[in-house]
Design a binder for these strands. Sequence first.
DNA 1: TATTGTTATACTCTATAACTATA
DNA 2: TATAGTTATAGAGTATAACAATA
Lengths: 147, 147
Amino acid sequence: MGTNATATPPTTADLMETVAAVGAAYFQDFAAAAARHGLNSSQAKALKAVREPVPMRALAGRLGCDASNVTGIVDRLESLGLAQREAAAGDRRVKIVGITEQGREVLERIRTDMVRAQEAFDSLDAEQRVALESLCRQVLPLLCATR
Amino acid sequence: MGTNATATPPTTADLMETVAAVGAAYFQDFAAAAARHGLNSSQAKALKAVREPVPMRALAGRLGCDASNVTGIVDRLESLGLAQREAAAGDRRVKIVGITEQGREVLERIRTDMVRAQEAFDSLDAEQRVALESLCRQVLPLLCATR
DNA sequence: TATTGTTATACTCTATAACTATA
DNA sequence: TATAGTTATAGAGTATAACAATA
């Protein structure tokens, strides 16, 4: 049941179409799971990003949005007890955002709440997992390269 | 240079993380390419969806948005000469949206304008393409399943 | 009476600019 | 003076509700 080397390989355009469909479906599943926990996708993405403490401004960079938005996003997480701001030692201007124990639990629940994604990737056997992970890792740096 | 069967397979959680990163990077590339052609991602997604003519309401379903938004989206495509509305034969309430020749050209240019995605998937050899396409196709129906 | 497409309207998310407090 | 975070504000995208035309 390995890869069929004789199959005609898809064109780059075909591959893009298929990968786009997977990406879109995955994101939908993610957003729905986050919503069930009272978070929109930006807030959930931020919660994921603060698993290691990070200054507000750096968080904006990670989320790819303006720094002014991060205030509201972190406000929401903090009001739910999922993240917390701490003053940075050394520079009293910066605040460092970290995840709380409760935040970690919610993050974990969101992931297990992504039922479709769970089923989809659980359906892959060990060899297929290795293959998919490896292909994604090869493709990822090229996709992220700054031009 | 085939898959390494002895590598420890990633957990489902790891796999989800990696696939999410690929999906996000791909979408960014797509949105940037669309913007270079004067379209936002919704409009570009709609242009892709009307390669086969489709009624306004059905288009809303495909885009996963409310029908009221489709009016503006198609207005934009029509004003750029990329799509056109036609009265449906048989039911004078419905309008069918189709792509124009110019629309097809723009769609093609958007794809070739996704330089990072092009490079990323061009970097895969024939065997890797077959493998990635096949894995995506296995996973996709599970990801899209209505619950 | 139900449905299609449209309009009017409100809400959410994001970006820009101005402000404060530190450096 | 420059920078981190915040606030005020405006813009874009989306959803809800009401409407006209048609079924």
